Simulated assay, not measured.
Amino acid sequence: MEERIRHIVKSLKTGYILFWVVAILLVIGGETELLPVGILADNVRACYFLETIGILLTAVCIPLSMKLFSLVLTRKIDKLTFPIALSRYASWSFVRLGLLGLVVIYNLLCYYMTLSSTGALCALCALTASFFCLPGEKRLRNELHIDKEE
């Protein structure tokens, strides 16, 4: 059981680090102009359309990722046996991080394509929200109500 918990925590931490690496690589790519920087800056309609989608995506995905995980944890995962609950916990943690990753990637790409700070702000909101998803063994044990075996 302990080995399985450590394995899940390690995979969750790897996913979390990968989330941040992708965000940092996008910023580096944009700042070094590896990404198409400013290609839509003069197209007002496209900027408006992309920014609106980015704002709506942020407004939906951030609360959804936080609240949906909490609801699934209390209503579904808590009622399962340990091995199944552990794998579902990991799956839903990746779904939550994936939703935040979608927001970050989309908004950073919008930021660099339109040169409008709205995309950067929305991406920053999602990156900040990811701190509430920080994985750890203590957190996993607390959320799944597992006592540490001595």
Rank of each mutant, 00 (worst) to 15 (best):
Leu34Lys: 10
Asp147Leu: 15
Ala129Asn: 01
Gly136Thr: 05
Met66Leu: 15
Ala85Val: 06
Ala59Pro: 02
Val27Tyr: 05
Leu26Phe: 12
Arg88Pro: 00
Val37Asn: 06
Leu50Tyr: 06
Ile62Thr: 05
Ile28Leu: 15
Val104Phe: 06
Ile146Ala: 04
Val44Pro: 07
Thr74Gly: 02
Val72Asn: 02
Tyr16Gln: 02
Ile39Gly: 07
Glu3Ile: 14
Leu18Tyr: 13
Glu143Thr: 08
His145Pro: 04
Leu99Cys: 01
Tyr48Ala: 12
Arg4Ala: 15
Leu124Glu: 01
Glu150Phe: 11
Pro63Trp: 09
Asp147His: 13
Tyr89Leu: 05
Thr74Asn: 12
Leu100Trp: 01
Cys133Lys: 09
Leu34Pro: 04
Trp20Phe: 15
Gly119His: 00
Ile39Leu: 12
Ile77Cys: 10
Pro36Gly: 06
Asn43Thr: 09
Thr81Lys: 15
Thr14Ile: 14
Leu115Cys: 10
Leu144Asp: 06
Glu51Tyr: 00
Gly98Lys: 05
Ser130Arg: 04
Arg96Asn: 08
Gly136Gln: 00
Cys122Ala: 15
Ile24Cys: 14
Leu64Trp: 10
Arg141Trp: 08
Thr58Tyr: 03
Asn142Gly: 08
Asp78Glu: 12
Ala120Val: 03
Leu86Tyr: 03
Thr114Ser: 03
Val72Leu: 10
Cys122Asn: 07
Leu40Ser: 10
Val60Leu: 13
Leu68Met: 11
Leu71Pro: 00
Leu64Asn: 03
Glu3Gly: 09
Thr14Lys: 12
Ile17Asp: 06
Leu80Val: 01
